[in-house]
Computed example of a mutant assay.
Amino acid sequence: MAEQAVAVDTNAPWGVRMGIGDRVIVGIFVGIPFIAVIVSVAVLWGWGVTWHDLVIGAVMYVIAGHGITIGYHRLFTHKAFKAARPLKVALAVAGTMAVEGDVITWAADHRRHHQFSDRPGDPHSPWRFGKTVPALVKGMIWAHVGWTFNNPKTNQRRYVPDLLADADLRRVAQWQPLIVLFSFAGPAVAGGLWGSGTWDGGAAWSAFFWAGLVRIGLLHHVTWSINSICHVGGERPFRSRDRSGNVWWLAPLSGGESWHNLHHADPTCARHGVLRGQLDSSARLIWLFERLGWARDVRWPDEQRLAARAGAD
Rank of each mutant, 00 (worst) to 15 (best):
M1C: 15
E3F: 01
E3A: 08
V6K: 15
A7I: 07
A7H: 12
A12T: 05
W14Q: 13
R17V: 03
G19A: 12
V24H: 08
I28K: 06
V30T: 12
V30K: 06
G31L: 03
G31S: 05
A42P: 10
V43H: 13
L44Y: 13
L44K: 12
L54G: 08
L54S: 12
V55G: 11
I56F: 15
A58V: 08
A58P: 03
V59R: 11
M60F: 14
V62L: 15
I63T: 02
A64Q: 00
G71R: 03
G71Q: 07
Y72E: 01
Y72D: 06
R74L: 07
L75W: 04
T77F: 06
T77R: 12
H78K: 08
A80M: 01
A84R: 14
P86H: 04
L87V: 14
G101L: 03
D102W: 09
V103Y: 10
I104E: 09
W106N: 06
A108I: 05
R112Y: 08
H113R: 01
H114F: 09
R119V: 01
S125M: 04
W127S: 00
T132V: 07
T132H: 10
T132C: 04
M140V: 12
V145S: 11
W147A: 05
T148R: 15
F149V: 04
F149R: 06
N150A: 10
K153T: 04
Q156A: 10
D166L: 08
A167R: 13
A167T: 04
L169I: 07
R170A: 10
A185M: 02
G186T: 05
V189L: 10
A190G: 06
S196Y: 01
W210Y: 09
L213H: 02
V214H: 09
R215A: 00
I216R: 03
V222C: 06
V222L: 11
N227S: 06
I229F: 13
C230G: 02
H231E: 12
H231T: 05
G233F: 13
G233P: 08
E235A: 14
R241F: 07
D242I: 04
G245N: 00
N246R: 11
W249C: 11
L253W: 06
S254K: 10
S254Q: 12
G255Y: 02
G256F: 12
G256A: 00
E257Y: 02
S258Q: 07
N261V: 01
H264P: 09
A265M: 04
H272D: 03
H272R: 04
G273R: 07
L275D: 07
R276L: 11
I286T: 10
L288Q: 06
G293M: 01
W294C: 03
A295H: 00
W300A: 13
E303V: 12
Q304K: 13
R305A: 10
L306D: 08
R309V: 01
A310C: 05
D313N: 14
